Amino acid sequence: MHNLYKLALFLWLFASQSSNAQNGIVVFQSDFGLKDGAVSAMKGVAMGVSPALKLFDLTHDIPAYNIWEAAYRLHQTVPYYPKGTVFVSVCDPGVGTERHSVVLLTKSGHYIVTPDNGTLTLVAEHLGIGQVRQIDEAINRLRNSNQSYTFHGRDVYAYTAARLASHTIRFEQVGPKLPTEVVRLPYQKAETANGMLKGTIPVLDIQYGNIWSNIPKSMIDQLDIKPGAMVRVQIFQNDQSLYDKSVTFVNTFGEAPVGDDVAYINSLLNFSIAINQGNFSEKYKVFSGPDWRIVLSKASK
Rank of each mutant, 00 (worst) to 15 (best):
V156F: 07
G118P: 08
H60C: 03
M1R: 09
H167E: 10
L34D: 05
L4R: 15
H60F: 06
S145L: 10
G96M: 12
Y159T: 11
G37Q: 12
A46E: 00
V182M: 01
N194R: 07
D61S: 15
D261V: 15
A8C: 10
G130T: 05
T121E: 02
A190N: 05
S272I: 04
F249C: 06
K83I: 04
D31N: 06
V45C: 00
D260Y: 09
N210S: 13
Y72W: 12
N144K: 11
A38L: 10
A165Q: 05
L74I: 06
P227Q: 06
F253L: 08
I67D: 00
K301G: 15
L142V: 11
Q131E: 15
Y243L: 04
A162P: 11
A46Q: 03
F151K: 10
L164E: 03
A41Q: 09
S246V: 04
K35I: 01
S213D: 03
E98F: 10
P202Q: 07
G278V: 09
Y72V: 14
I265A: 11
L242F: 10
D221C: 01
Q134I: 08
A162V: 10
S246K: 15
R73E: 08
V233H: 04
A274L: 05
V247F: 10
N194C: 00
G44L: 01
M219V: 00
T97W: 06
D116Q: 13
T106V: 10
S40P: 01
R73T: 06
S89L: 02
K6A: 15
S281P: 12
G199Q: 06
N210F: 14
W68L: 03
E172Q: 14
F32H: 10
V123Q: 06
D239I: 11
N194P: 00
V90A: 02
F32K: 08
K226W: 03
M196A: 11
P290V: 08
H100I: 00
A161S: 08
W212I: 03
S30D: 02
N266R: 07
A161C: 09
Y80N: 14
V203L: 14
V250H: 05
G48M: 04
K83S: 13
V45Q: 01
V103G: 04
S272F: 06
N276A: 03
K107M: 14
F32V: 04
V78R: 08
L204W: 13
N266G: 11
F14H: 09
I235N: 06
I129Y: 07
S241F: 03
Q76R: 14
G153R: 12
H100M: 02
Q240P: 00
A21W: 04
A274V: 03
F171R: 05
H100E: 10
I265R: 09
K298Y: 02
Q22Y: 00
